Amino acid sequence: MASQGTKRSYEQMETDGERQNATEIRASVGKMIDGIGRFYIQMCTELKLSDYEGRLIQNSLTIERMVLSAFDERRNKYLEEHPSAGKDPKKTGGPIYKRVDRKWMRELVLYDKEEIRRIWRQANNGDDATAGLTHMMIWHSNLNDTTYQRTRALVRTGMDPRMCSLMQGSTLPRRSGAAGAAVKGVGTMVMELIRMIKRGINDRNFWRGENGRKTRSAYERMCNILKGKFQTAAQRAMMDQVRESRNPGNAEIEDLIFLARSALILRGSVAHKSCLPACVYGPAVASGYDFEKEGYSLVGIDPFKLLQNSQVYSLIRPNENPAHKSQLVWMACNSAAFEDLRVLSFIRGTKVSPRGKLSTRGVQIASNENMDAMESSTLELRSRYWAIRTRSGGNTNQQRASAGQISVQPAFSVQRNLPFDKPTIMAAFTGNTEGRTSDMRAEIIRMMEGAKPEEMSFQGRGVFELSDERAANPIVPSFDMSNEGSYFFGDNAEEYDN
């Protein structure tokens, strides 16, 4: 993207840094990872977990959730003011799984939030270390993106479920800051804005008074975040219109849905970061690795190297396929839920299948599930090659597409044709070009129609051997075009429920 120079890199967003050079960025990201790792080690000690239990991804998720809940100030305040039966607002906890007599047992633990905050700050040299908290939120978000298709949420806001490739980060909490905003897809931002506008339509006082002023500035800020994701002048001009509207209503909703559809071809720039579970960072720190000293990046080879040398386990339900569970977590670790499966298959070195073909449910185990038949197995999170994460949407291309997802959002900077089903997408653009945004709409449609099938995206960008740390010898991959490109292809993934 041309304006790259004016933006802070995501590592800076990730670490609240002012302008830093590459070495400083690597050190501050490393410091953040160190903090998460030290916190995780301490929690495993508190909970008396064995090494194996500490490497269980379900335990990692519970521990991450506990610290996120302990620092969720708004919710904590709300819980104190609106006490609900049987919930102690000062405590947080969740299921911890232990191996007892050759069987997995679930144990519900409860801790004072104050105590968890103390352990977290102690692991982070006394700081609140917001960057580390956001990092864990993005890992949870990436896992949700890989596990669930947001059909219901899309339909509720009037969008087409086939636009799911635009929904990265749709389950990120509001408090995820600049680093969170960077990884949100165009569809996620559109959905947040539509929800806001709908509230304004239904509630006369939404934009009024002292609160209304705050609401208005939040609305304009979200519009600017979305505008910054678009790469064409016409899309940005249309966002200006939406932002400046005196009284946002149905016309703005129409414009936003139009823009979301246009992003299936004229893709937005959305950041991709490899955020790993805390149970990967903990053992690495415990083994003596100093992330701050060595430096770390979320968008280069580092996460690949770390996963190459990590042992992570997962509980497996009786009829689940461990290899499929591994694929789910591998995609989440690489922030690749909406990437082209052919690119992923090449990088991973084994075939990556669409969601609907995987015999696996989510990673988390519900409290009512029976533990008797639970097994555990090693997650295979290694890769054959590594590639640089991208934040450009890439230019655009036609490809055989599917009944489910009709476009992709690249996660890796790797040369390819970008699949999208042009006739299906263009069919949504018939007729409606009147109104105050008509010239911009016409211009956007013209650009979409001009998108050429034979153009290559990320020209000359390749993948790298894991021994090639400096990215000196790019390998331009070859793809098996007979395979499906979309992950949520004609899909039956479970729906995400809060």
Rank of each mutant, 00 (worst) to 15 (best):
H272P: 14
A129F: 05
A27E: 04
V343L: 12
I425Y: 05
G268P: 03
P474G: 09
F429C: 05
D290I: 10
V312Q: 04
S310K: 14
G300N: 11
L344D: 03
R361N: 10
M448W: 12
N211D: 09
E254A: 07
S478M: 11
W386S: 01
G35C: 10
F258T: 10
D16F: 08
M440S: 15
F291Q: 13
R243K: 15
C164R: 05
A182E: 06
E449D: 13
T45C: 01
K113M: 13
E320C: 05
A182M: 12
L264H: 15
G17E: 12
I265K: 14
Q231I: 02
E494A: 05
Q42D: 13
E434Q: 00
G490E: 09
A428P: 01
R236K: 15
D340I: 11
Y487A: 11
Q311M: 03
N370M: 05
A234D: 15
L341G: 12
A472P: 06
F338D: 13
F304P: 14
R391E: 14
L226D: 11
H140P: 01
R65P: 01
E254R: 13
S28V: 03
D302M: 03
S457H: 03
R162S: 14
E220S: 05
I406D: 12
E380C: 01
Q308K: 05
T147Y: 10
T130I: 08
R446E: 15
V414F: 10
D72G: 12
G185V: 09
V29Y: 09
F464Y: 08
Q12D: 00
I475E: 09
L256V: 01
R243E: 07
G177V: 04
M331S: 15
R461M: 12
I425W: 11
E64N: 05
M167Y: 05
G349F: 10
G5S: 01
C44L: 08
G356C: 08
Y487N: 02
P410R: 06
Q4C: 00
D112I: 07
K229S: 11
G228N: 10
E434M: 00
S50G: 03
L68H: 15
S326I: 02
S359Y: 05
G86A: 00
F429S: 08
Q399S: 00
G282H: 08
P474Y: 09
V155L: 14
L381C: 10
F489D: 10
I194C: 01
S377D: 06
L259A: 01
I194E: 12
Q168N: 02
C223V: 12
R348I: 03
R174Y: 07
T62L: 01
T171S: 03
Y289D: 09
M32Y: 10
T171G: 13
L172C: 06
V363C: 00
R221V: 12
E18I: 01
A218P: 12
Q231H: 01
R106W: 08
E292T: 12
A373H: 03
N309M: 00
R118W: 10
G300H: 11
V363S: 06
T147N: 10
S407M: 10
C223I: 12
S326E: 11
M447H: 02
Y296S: 14
G228E: 02
M43P: 09
N309E: 13
A387K: 11
P474Q: 12
M238C: 06
D160A: 08
R470F: 11
T378E: 14
N319A: 03
R446Y: 07
Q42T: 05
R384M: 03
D340N: 04
L358T: 14
G169K: 05
A403P: 01
V408H: 06
L276N: 12
E81Q: 05
R441F: 08
A366R: 10
R8T: 05
P303E: 10
S170Q: 07
E375K: 13
L466G: 00
S413F: 13
M196R: 15
R150F: 09
G35P: 06
M159E: 08
T171P: 03
K351F: 08
M239H: 09
